[in-house]
Amino acid sequence: MTIHDLTAPFAGQGLVQIGEVLLAFALASLIGLERQLRSKSAGIRTQTIVGTASALMLLVSKYGFSDVLLAGHVVLDPSRVAAQIVSGVGFLGAGLILTRRGAVRGLTTAASVWETAAIGMAAGTGLWLLALVVTALHFVVVFGYTALIRALPRSAESSLTLDVLYDSGRGVLPKVLTLVTASGWHVGRLVQQESDRDETTSVRLEVTGPRDSGMLLAQLGEVDGVRAVDPTAADDLE
């Protein structure tokens, strides 16, 4: 491609570049869909935006400044924007990581955002085969490795955060705590939440116990006076 070709009105905006952006959009959407279906904080919208925007920034870096090129005088490094994407998305991912009582949550979600940016960058530079391979490897990690981790002996127990809303003044909380411990779960922390109504109380329970929490949630929902139970899995690797 000559300097004249680069300075044409639609240089860098052809079918190839549009295809690269659409590829980044599709692959990032797949990763986002997986996050969304597993109720993670960075879902399909976040991942798709990060991947597509990364591809666009790479294309801007490659073609966006072609009108100022001058042979022998003005030379641009097309990799300069790529370096800024890496650091910028790293900052975004840091905001998804939570530390609670010494336990770190959200590492996989933050890493997936960083990975989505890399896939978008690969698609934006035309490395579509690498983008496809890394997308496939993402699903190997989140499904294959998750199953492996759960099969390990130290994964026999899971952590769960329960937001329980119940009627005030009816002695509901002792019943809830008794049921939790009787079901083989251990209460690590109990925090009372603010409630908009005087007749109800909301507490947050952090519990650890058997991997299957379905029975516990069903039993808590049947306790007289309990209005709602909102569970949140606290998997260290998610």
Rank of each mutant, 00 (worst) to 15 (best):
A111F: 02
A94S: 05
V207G: 03
P210F: 10
T135R: 02
R101C: 08
L152W: 05
G188V: 10
I3Q: 15
G14F: 02
W128C: 13
A24W: 02
R204V: 10
L23C: 07
L92P: 01
A117T: 03
T208I: 12
V86F: 05
A122I: 01
T2V: 05
L96H: 00
L217H: 08
G88A: 02
G169R: 14
L59R: 07
G32Y: 02
D77M: 12
T201A: 15
H186C: 08
A182R: 15
H186A: 14
A123Q: 07
Q84F: 06
F139W: 01
R105P: 07
I97K: 02
L177A: 07
V104M: 14
L152D: 09
P153A: 04
G214H: 14
D5I: 00
A24K: 09
A8Y: 00
V104D: 10
Y63E: 05
V164G: 00
D212K: 12
D167E: 15
K62P: 07
R227A: 08
A94M: 05
V113L: 06
G126I: 07
K175V: 13
T146P: 00
L27W: 04
Q192S: 15
T232E: 13
M57D: 06
D67G: 01
Q47F: 06
A82L: 02
D67F: 15
S39V: 04
V74T: 09
H186E: 12
Q47W: 04
W128T: 05
E222H: 12
Q47M: 04
L27G: 02
S29E: 02
V140D: 01
F91M: 04
S29T: 15
R211G: 08
A228C: 11
D167P: 03
E222Y: 08
P78F: 09
V203E: 04
L179K: 11
R80F: 06
A94F: 00
L59C: 10
A82T: 03
T146N: 11
A42H: 04
L58F: 07
I49M: 11
Y63D: 05
R211K: 13
D212F: 08
L137I: 13
V86D: 04
A156Q: 14
L179G: 03
T178M: 14
H4A: 14
G106N: 00
M57P: 03
D212G: 10
L190G: 06
G32P: 01
G169E: 07
H186N: 11
S61L: 10
V16M: 14
T232G: 05
R170V: 06
T178G: 15
W185H: 10
D77S: 13
V16D: 05
E115C: 13
L160E: 04
L132H: 03
A83R: 08
R35G: 01
G120W: 01
T181D: 13
A136R: 10
M121H: 09
L137W: 13
T208C: 06
S87V: 01
V226S: 07
